[in-house]
Nucleic acid binder design. Structure first.
Lengths: 322, 322
DNA sequence: CTGTTAGCGCATTCAT
DNA sequence: ATGAATGCGCTAACAG
């Protein structure tokens, strides 16, 4: 019984007599043999894994995308190798380095700050799928899925305007974050398209986390007592805003309308449920996973256009005219 | 310039003349050389990775633990390899198989259903650290960190009793989940220790997700209009309960006190902020990671006794005596 | 300080 | 249908 025969049995590479196969399987069970993925990878050059660069392993935002990736990879024979970049370029670079040295066969990048050129360079070596940013690749083996943050913010603010609101505050995200800038731009444009001025001090600076939403809201209310609605650049800050209003005795939506962005799982269960815009993170992750698998196996996938969806819930009321 | 010299430079295994080192690094940059972790692992027998078996990659509950593991591993030279078991025994077994074939050097198991005997068997081969279940290992290279769910539930309910509440409902978790059973047992014991009867129909059956908390609460209120407090077996169901109360026009905490369990990140920002009990998931994950690294490197770590901490927030008020 | 040699465990020729 | 031989890329032991 030679090693090659065993190899053939394990991989089904060639026909082997059934008796021998059974014999070998018995021995495997008995000895608790586990094939060494390193040795196999070394000779085949295939790792069977797809690198996933996320930003925060505990983030509810990217968590959905990770679930989607998991399900998209399921049954493909590939498994994800997940590393966090913590929104820090050097962490991200280390992560990519690690993934490459582990010989991942494709890369899925969730957000982050890696320069486009670097991504394009990587795409020369393996299929890349980017979520949350638009990146143009030369080769069709790589792709990106971006959302129109600006448009979604525009729609959200327009919705408030349609309900009669005129003094609309904005709790913005970090200015070095492209999503945050786009959402701010959408807010601004929606106002201007209705002939309303953009007032810088109706914008409070946040950092996408709850406490900054709380503080920002306190500032906005203090500066503009006539404000009737707040657009928070993400749901987490909207939660902070909600609490600030509660503390100040302002009712939502009677005294203040509130809208968020991202439609986190919890947003349907706040009091009142929060109007927000849903990015189909899980679906996008799923598709990206199927995309890279398709590249790896020489198949094709149907294109996918993610749709942002407004979830109109009870946190918004028409403006009252006293 | 021999391969071994390059190897020595990359690993700092031996002294190498600085000029040569610089020369090599330049070449590495120029050629975009990436060491092959497979080949390295094959010869050293070390993968540099620690397997992590979680249940749901998007779960806020385990997410914190994962963050802790990440930070505990940071700088150790080990990186996590994360696979989800989805609370399904066969998924978990596949995950372990995969991790083993990828030659992880240690295993961190978050919850799950793997039989204890199997875990003990695995512990013969590599260090294992289990979170959320008490597992007795023969060897000191493996350990487990469990929380006293029963005690925490007992404390929480006792807190409500101390505030004068007598009719306390419970939205329970899935009965096949040991945490859920322990929390129910703590609830029951707290009542009985005060001489109060345990009423089965003051318990609604939930599944640890928001909708079941909403429905369960509706049932409880319908059955027991005189109920003044609700203990939800986790925070997610408490969010559902909160919304149910809002819909019914019951105020929290004036008309109904509400407590959860887990102290999710969002619970400090609900309206009103939710009283809950905090399991130090991140700290536990951090310690478990440091524990396995210590086993791997022959060091020792100080023992760690996780402390459950009650977070008393505004969702509880003393019972009003009309 | 550095080059040479051997071998990690496996899949894959090439023989038989 | 199966065994023997080769090499994947790297590190460790051994010389020098």
């Amino acid at each position: 019984m030679s090693p090659s025969t065993v190899s053939r049995i394990l991989n089904g590479t060639a026909q082997v007599k059934a008796t021998k196969a059974a014999q070998v399987r018995a021995a495997i069970d008995r000895l608790g043999y586990k094939p060494n993925a390193f040795a196999r990878g070394l000779v085949t050059g295939a790792s069977g894994s797809v690198g996933v660069l996320t930003q925060d392993i505990a983030s509810p935002f990217y968590g959905d995308a990770l679930s989607g990736i998991e399900s998209g990879l399921m049954g493909s024979g590939y498994s994800p190798m997940i590393i966090s970049g913590h929104w820090r370029t050097d962490d991200e670079e280390h992560a990519v380095e690690l993934l490459l040295s582990r010989r991942v066969e494709a890369l899925i990048v969730l957000g982050g700050q890696l320069p486009e050129d670097e991504l394009r360079g990587l795409a020369g070596g393996l299929p890349i799928a980017v979520l949350g940013r638009r990146v143009e690749f030369d080769s069709p083996t790589s792709t990106s899925l971006a959302l129109d943050n600006r448009r979604a913010a525009y729609d959200l603010v327009t919705y408030l305007l349609d309900r009669g609101h005129r003094r609309i505050g904005h709790v913005a995200g970090p200015p070095d974050h492209v999503d945050a800038r786009d959402r701010l731009a959408g807010y601004r444009q929606a106002l201007e398209d209705r002939g309303l001025p953009f007032l810088p001090d109706l914008v409070a600076q946040g950092d996408f986390h709850e406490p900054s939403g709380l503080i920002g809201t306190q500032q906005l209310v203090a500066r503009h007592p006539d404000m009737t609605a707040i657009f928070s650049a993400n749901d987490q800050m909207a939660y902070g805003a909600r609490l600030a209003l509660y503390r100040m005795g302002l009712r939502v939506p009677e005294d203040m309308s509130l809208v968020g962005f991202d439609d986190l799982p919890g947003s349907a269960y706040t009091t009142p449920p929060l109007t927000s815009v849903r990015q189909p993170m899980a679906e996008m992750g799923h598709w990206l996973a199927r995309f890279v698998v398709a590249q790896l196996t020489g198949q094709t996938v149907e294109p996918f256009q993610p749709q942002l969806k407004l979830h109109l819930r009870e946190s918004v009321a028409p403006r009252r005219f006293p």
